[in-house]
Each structure stands twice: as C-alpha cells, then as structure tokens.
Amino acid sequence: MKRLLTLNRHLTERIGFTAITLLAMVTVLPIVGTIIYILIQGAPAISLEFLTGFPRNGMREGGIFPAIIGTLYLALGTSIFSVPLGIAAAIYLSEYASDTPLTRTIRIAIINLAGIPSVVYGLFGLGLFVLFLNFGTSILAASLTLSIMTLPVIISTAEEALRAVPQSFRTVSISLGATRWQTIRRIVLKEALPGILTGVILGLERAVGETAPILFTGAAFFLPKLPGSPFDATMALPYHLFVISTQVPEMPIQIQYGTALVLLAFVLTMNLIATVIRSRARARRQW
C-alpha cells in the first residue's frame, strides 16, 4: 500500500512537470512560428535591388530603400530627443528626488504615459508638432512623437538600472570627498550604463516598429526621393508595410513579406544587441 502511494506521487509529479513543460513550450511557438513563416515567405524577395532600390510600378516592383533609410532617420531622431531626456529624468528620480507629492506625480505620469495607445500619441503629435508648432508632416514631428512614446520605457528601465547600483558605493564616494554629481558621473552612471543602454534599445525598438504615431506626423505613402531635411516627410518600414498590404491592389505577396522580414530583422537585431550588452555587463560586473 505504502509503495503504491509513493509510486503514485512520482507519477503525479511526472505528469505535472510534463504539463508545465508543454505549456512553456507553447509560449515559444507563436514567436518561432512567426519568424519561420515570415522567413519562408519573405526570403525570396530579398535581393540587393530590394534593399537598395526605390519602389517602381506603383510599389509593385523594385525595392524598399527609402523606407529603410526613413526608419533609420526616425530611430536616430527619436534617440536624439528621448535618450538625453529619459536618462536625465531617470537620474533625477533615482538620485535626487525624495518622496514628495511632486515626484509621486511624476512617477504616476510616467506609468500612465506607458499605457496610452500609440494612435493617441499620433493624434497628439499631429496637434502639437505638425499643426501648432508648424513642423509639418516631417521627420522632426514624427521623431518628437515617437520620443514621447518611448520616454516611459527609457525612464523606467534607466531608473531601475541606476537603483540597482549598491547604495554603499554612493556612501563611500561621498565620504571620500566627492560631490553627489561626481559620484553619479564617475560611479553610478558607469555601473548603470549597460542597463540604461538596454532600456534605450528596447525603447527605440518599440518606436521603430510603430505605425500609428507616425501615420499623421511624418510618414509618406510614397516619395520619389530620399528626405533632404528633418522637415521633410519620410517613408518608413512599418507604414510602408501597412500601405502595401492594404492600399495597393494586385500587390505581389513576397514584397509584403520581404518588407516584414526586413522590419523584423531590424527589431530582432536591436534585441540581440541589447541582450549581448546585458550579458557581457553581467559577466564583468564587480558587485
């Protein structure tokens, strides 16, 4: 009787573990499936001409070069605004702010900022940057809109990275005659940098993949030439994908999947870079 019970217990455990393992594997399926599917469908479209050429014949032929360049411009523009601002805000929150109604308000604002649907950011960007500030439908307006959307991600990951630096480093540094700012610059920021970079990349990654915020603020349906200044509109990968998937009749399917593949490669590469930075920093960390 006793042996039977023990056996039973082992069996129950086996079944339980198997179920959990299967469920865990199910979560991997969608991502792997998506990647494989897009790879198979899109890979035939990838060619030198596709990556470096302009769209031809109502975008049914040719390449997606302007969309790739446009996405790079938007990523660059977004990082110019959101990175310094986000890191400064994180430093303020982690290093200087004490727990006052003001800082609590800032924190709540950041959390809520992260929850706003991206199309609402698009509308806000249209109102503020395109119309009120008169930047027009432009890389500048789109970058600013994407920056606002990216900020919460950058701020919260950067703040977390800063807070992870042991308090004792700060105390010791101050006791050796450092000012608060010297301590932040020479110790805290240096140690938090990999974590901050990860946050920046993840934030930009999100910005790069978004369609809604640039829809009204900077994205162009089709442009015969590359944008020449920040005040020009630009093509961009996610919007281009939307356009060729829904707005152009008789669109060859491999161009759609080719575009999706390039966008996916963009995003996954950024993810990979973030992961490498993180694991390298973890190996080298001295605390």
Binding site: S168, F169, T171, V172, S173, I174, L176, K190, R285
Partner: peptide, 25 residues
C-alpha cells in the same frame, strides 16, 4: 570629508582597480 576619513564595517571596494580605488579621492 577629506580631512576626516572613514572606513566602513563592510569593505566596499569601488568597482575599479586597486590603484584606481586608492587615487579616487
């Protein structure tokens, strides 16, 4: 603080080399 130095209960080497620790201040 330069005139009145302090050593803490737990050794807290700053995350740098021995030499850099010594010359930090």
């Amino acid at each position: 603080r330069r005139k009145v130095g302090m050593v803490f209960a737990r050794p807290v080497p700053l995350p740098m080399s021995i030499r850099e620790n010594i010359i930090y201040g």
